[in-house]
Amino acid sequence: MHTIFGAGGAVADQLLPILLHSQQKVRLVSRTAKAIPGVESVAADATNYTQTLQAIKGSSVVYLLLGLPYDIRIWRAQWPVIMTNVINACKETGARLIFFDNVYMYGKVNGWMTEETAFNPCSKKGEVRAAIANQLLQEIKAGNLQAMIARCADFYGPIGFKTSVPNLLVIQNLIKGKKAQWLGSADQPHSITYVPDAARALYLLANKPEAFGQTWHLPTASELITGRQFAKEAAAVMQKPDGVSAIPGWMLSLIGLFNRPLKELKEMNYQSDSPYLFSSDKFNKAFGFTPTSYSDGIKETCLWAMESGK
């Protein structure tokens, strides 16, 4: 049984068809279970240990793909509880755990981020992510469970607009006939993970026993791309006017007075005002995987957006 905590999210929605195509038994876990043909749907709150344990019982692999509201108050209160509950439930049941993580714990990095990059968070959210990642790593080192961390950069793809800033600011704006936007500098190189690649990689990792006990960066194109280039390629596919408007930090501060998620983005400006380079060489070599190019990924995302009428 492959169990997904965080059903209905961007990554979960891409992983589900891969699991079904591979004829795996699938259990989807979320706070409000939604019936989907061919899978078991379970309602559970990961901050409740009893519910978490019941949702994990019988699982061979658990994918922790949960996303919490972008609010540091919620992250501080809930992430440590969720990680503790999931770890303990996996230890009790013998399920293997794959934790889908981001790069906030690295902080500002001079050069390429790799699996060996030290944790040096420079944001409040980065401190939370470092703490829960270290908690899991300590359990792995102690031999208490089989688990791994699968990490990705900012992401995009045919996944909706709620959790992808490039989708929201570039592709959705172009769909609406507006000018593309970008957070911070539009001229700094910025790695972006194509979510369908990340989902394929999660399943590959789940089926390779020796992959457990390690941290993996999920496949991401190694070519350099800037926000301006991303917007230019998207505009070309969608036959929209070229150009991008950068959103400076002071504007986020102003808008953040009335919009909590945008206020929360302010401390992450360091990711946009300097090079943000994410290496997945370890995964690519281990699995013979070639990440989707930005050209192809942007094209597929734009075609999806136009066809879905978003």
Rank of each mutant, 00 (worst) to 15 (best):
residue 138 Q to S: 15
residue 68 L to D: 12
residue 120 N to S: 15
residue 308 S to K: 15
residue 304 W to T: 11
residue 152 C to P: 07
residue 214 Q to C: 06
residue 213 G to L: 12
residue 9 G to D: 12
residue 51 Q to H: 10
residue 163 T to L: 01
residue 255 I to G: 04
residue 99 F to L: 12
residue 254 L to C: 08
residue 87 I to P: 11
residue 148 M to R: 06
residue 230 F to T: 04
residue 213 G to I: 12
residue 215 T to R: 03
residue 185 S to M: 05
residue 258 F to H: 07
residue 240 K to F: 01
residue 11 V to P: 05
residue 119 F to N: 05
residue 188 Q to Y: 00
residue 118 A to C: 09
residue 73 R to Q: 13
residue 284 N to R: 03
residue 209 P to H: 09
residue 107 G to H: 04
residue 35 A to H: 15
residue 11 V to T: 14
residue 158 P to S: 13
residue 2 H to G: 03
residue 233 E to F: 04
residue 275 P to D: 03
residue 125 K to A: 07
residue 305 A to P: 10
residue 57 K to H: 09
residue 13 D to R: 08
residue 6 G to A: 11
residue 229 Q to Y: 05
residue 89 A to E: 06
residue 180 A to H: 05
residue 51 Q to R: 09
residue 51 Q to T: 10
residue 167 N to E: 00
residue 73 R to F: 11
residue 246 A to S: 15
residue 18 I to E: 15
residue 197 D to R: 00
residue 166 P to K: 05
residue 110 N to M: 08
residue 62 V to Q: 01
residue 93 T to G: 01
residue 145 L to A: 11
residue 135 Q to S: 12
residue 180 A to G: 04
residue 124 K to M: 14
residue 96 R to L: 06
residue 261 P to Q: 08
residue 69 P to T: 09
residue 181 Q to C: 01
residue 117 T to Q: 14
residue 243 G to P: 04
residue 306 M to G: 03
residue 54 Q to Y: 08
residue 27 R to T: 06
residue 35 A to Y: 10
residue 181 Q to T: 12
residue 121 P to E: 13
residue 220 T to A: 09
residue 26 V to C: 08
residue 123 S to K: 06
residue 90 C to K: 13
residue 80 P to N: 00
residue 72 I to G: 14
residue 307 E to F: 02
residue 239 Q to T: 07
residue 24 Q to L: 05
residue 217 H to M: 03
residue 215 T to S: 06
residue 224 L to T: 07
residue 43 A to N: 05
residue 219 P to Y: 00
residue 143 G to F: 10
residue 24 Q to E: 12
residue 39 V to Y: 05
residue 252 L to Y: 01
residue 210 E to M: 02
residue 135 Q to K: 15
residue 29 V to Q: 10
residue 130 A to T: 13
residue 45 D to V: 04
residue 68 L to N: 11
residue 174 L to F: 05
residue 54 Q to D: 11
residue 141 K to Q: 10
residue 282 K to I: 02
residue 140 I to G: 08
residue 194 Y to W: 05
residue 230 F to W: 11
residue 15 L to I: 09
residue 209 P to Q: 09
residue 204 L to G: 07
residue 267 E to A: 05
residue 95 A to W: 03
residue 281 D to T: 00
residue 92 E to S: 06
residue 97 L to W: 03
residue 37 P to R: 09
residue 299 K to M: 07
residue 207 N to Q: 14
residue 67 G to F: 08
residue 51 Q to P: 12
residue 40 E to W: 00
residue 101 D to C: 11
residue 110 N to V: 14
residue 304 W to E: 10
residue 193 T to C: 08
